[in-house]
């Protein structure tokens, strides 16, 4: 073996030792940074999740101890339970319409409000207000007044000679009305878009302007790619959150009329706390987890084609 080769090998050993040390440091730093979450997960979250998984194989009324029933709950969900199929399809419809609607609408408004103009503070607050009242009990009363049989919407329609329906109390329109309510409360999504827009360096727009780019081109070439991580976030979380939509159905329609707004989360809640079938509810929850997880995986897989991360040096993923 030549001296050069030996030297190279030694250097290699040194380098790999350095790399190992660097990797060790990086691991330490990484775990140190995520430790608040990790500790919380291990202390507070892991056990309840494991419990719910165990309970999904039991019959558990909450009022007495759980009894092991194997996979009975899952078998019943897929083989017999018509309500499962119904509430899942209601929820899918809800997600399918409300997620894109909310994304589109909130981006549009965020763009309109992303200016330095006198009074903009007030406009932003006004637009955000509906989202603040969230699940307040007043929302239910308010919504009934808007969309009731003799509510304001029908009064306006009457001016045009249109005979309105009971938007919330008609099984054909109730789900659509809840989707509308959900879209009306687009504030949180909009705020995230606003924060994202603010993070785009102005220089990019300035230099594009120097190159003579118009506003459409600026939007397509700069805003969209720079905003894509935030849009991706809103999409993923919109899907996860919409599948668990609960409050509006719970306080406004109680899932009715005739199950037309019987969202999955409401079905699950009633099973657990109203029908005293926590075991069955847990199984329902795990079925939902699998569905949502699969969709999220699809989302992440698709993201490499359209989400652009500045930190990855301009490459997508």
């Amino acid at each position: 073996m030549g001296i050069a080769a030996e030297r190279a090998a030694a250097a290699g050993r040194g380098a790999s030792a350095r790399r190992r040390k660097a990797a060790g440091d990086a691991n330490l730093a990484g775990y140190l940074f995520i430790s608040p979450w990790l500790i919380g997960f291990l202390l507070l979250t892991l056990w309840p999740i494991a419990q719910s998984f165990y309970l999904s194989f039991t019959e558990y009324s909450l009022l007495s101890d759980p009894a092991w029933t194997g996979t009975d709950n899952y078998a019943k969900i897929f083989a017999e339970d018509a309500t499962f199929a119904k509430s899942l399809s209601v929820t899918f419809l809800f997600v399918l319409f409300s997620v894109p609607l909310k994304l589109f609408f909130s981006l549009l408004v965020a763009m309109a409000l992303n200016r330095n103009m006198r009074g903009m503070n007030l406009y932003r607050t006004a637009v955000y207000f509906p989202s603040l009242i969230g699940g307040s009990i007043a929302v239910a009363a308010l919504w009934r007044n808007m969309f009731g049989l003799d509510g304001y919407v029908n009064q306006v329609l009457a001016w045009f000679g249109i005979q309105g329906v009971g938007w919330i109390s008609n099984p054909d329109t109730s789900l659509g009305t809840l989707i509308l309510l959900n879209t009306w409360q687009f504030g949180s999504t909009m705020v995230i878009f606003l924060a994202g827009l603010k993070q785009i360096p102005q220089e990019l727009y300035e230099s594009a302007a120097v190159d003579g780019a118009g506003s459409v081109r600026k939007f397509v070439r700069i805003t969209l790619p720079m905003l894509s991580p935030v849009m991706f976030f809103n999409l993923v979380l919109g899907v996860i959150g919409s599948f668990q939509t609960f409050t509006s159905a719970f306080i406004i329609t109680k899932g009715g009329p005739v199950n037309s707004t019987y969202m999955y989360a409401m079905f699950l809640y009633e099973k657990a706390f109203k029908h005293y079938q926590m075991g069955y509810a847990s199984a329902l929850a795990w079925v939902l987890l699998v569905i949502v997880a699969l969709l999220t995986v699809v989302n992440f897989a698709a993201s490499r084609y359209w989400v652009f991360y500045e930190s990855d040096g301009g490459k997508t993923r």
Binding site: P48, I49, S52, F243, Q244, A285, L288, V292
Partner: peptide, 9 residues
């Protein structure tokens, strides 16, 4: 952890 409905935990 976000995908499991809170009602069961």
């Amino acid at each position: 952890t976000m995908m499991l409905p809170g009602q069961v935990t």
